[in-house]
Nucleic acid binder design. Structure first.
Length: 277
DNA sequence: AACGCGCCCTGTCCGC
DNA sequence: TGCGGACAGGGCGCGT
């Protein structure tokens, strides 16, 4: 669920709904969602009195900037598998059943972090710390710097299955299992192919397919299989548009062959044996 | 040192 | 109806 398109949708929603508000306090109900070394007291002290100045995204992370840029605190939210970030005024906020952290604003609004499985992580940085951390993440697939040549350079250097390379956040940031499989489907490449076996032309097709599927998913406000919700607590609309992920046994929309599910390094992969090589 | 594996945790579904 | 096992979108630490 929460991959690049979902994080992007949430960031846009929160920018519109709660940007500009000032934090009155932070209540931590499940401290295991805080990064190691981040205490509830440190989180509260770092954000209290600061205003939410900007909401962005890096990879799958929603990035909330608080306070003036020369002395900012940066809250970085990785949603894990089941994390949600929902404004409390949202119509469906009452449906949240596993709120782990509540960020209260001075005007009575709040931002809720809800996470059934608690695989999500919240971390707090200053500008320098976040600069170092964000540099460890790989290329942004929707940036101009993500080109066929750059992707081909990455694939040539790796023996791992191409599906796994796409999941490596240090190489390409923001792609998870759903969109990795969808991009490979669109590009006509099997998930188990060794990354280094991709031709220049295949890398170019994969580059285009990845950008296209991520853009399409953002337009549809993300994929909800079960848990994902946007910043207003609503489900995304891309699930019916998935062509390969989760569709084993169904007919390939392109060639009519039967979509297969295989396990690649302990995680499901889906492909069409008829039109993926 | 790139890569695969096991684990973190809860909920749901499926087969018996 | 109950129960055990498999499985789920992610990421980290570890061993090789």
């Amino acid at each position: 669920m929460p991959e690049l398109p979902e994080a992007e949708t949430i960031a846009r929603d929160l920018r519109r709904r709660i940007a500009g508000r000032r934090i009155a306090g932070v209540d931590v109900r499940h401290r295991d969602v805080l990064a190691p070394g981040l205490s509830p007291a440190t989180l509260d002290a770092g954000l209290r009195g600061r205003a939410l100045t900007e909401v962005g995204r890096r990879g799958k992370n929603v990035v909330l900037h608080f306070g003036a840029s020369d002395d900012a605190r940066i809250l970085v939210v990785n949603l894990g598998m089941t994390g949600r970030l929902v404004a409390s005024a949202a119509r469906r906020a009452g449906e949240l059943g596993h709120i782990a952290v509540r960020f209260r604003f001075e005007d009575g609004e709040a931002l809720l972090f809800d996470d059934v499985r608690r695989f999500g992580r919240l971390d707090l940085y200053d500008a320098a710390g976040w600069g170092a951390r964000r540099a460890e993440l790989g290329l942004e697939p929707l940036d101009d710097a993500f080109t066929a040549a750059r992707l081909h350079a990455l694939t040539r250097a790796s023996r791992t299955p191409i599906r796994n390379l796409l999941l490596d956040q240090r190489k390409v940031a923001g792609v998870g299992n759903i969109y990795a499989n969808e991009a490979l489907y669109r590009a006509g490449i099997r998930p188990r192919r060794a990354a280094r076996s991709l031709t220049r032309a295949e890398a170019a097709r994969l580059c285009d397919a990845l950008r296209a599927v991520l853009r399409d998913a953002i337009r549809a406000r993300g994929t909800t299989l079960r848990d994902y919700r946007d910043g207003g607590g609503e489900a995304g609309g891309f699930e019916p548009l998935l062509e390969a992920y989760g569709r084993n046994g169904a007919a390939c929309p392109r060639c009519g062959a039967t979509i297969k599910r295989v396990v690649v390094t302990n995680r499901s992969a889906f492909y069409c044996p008829g039109c993926q090589r």
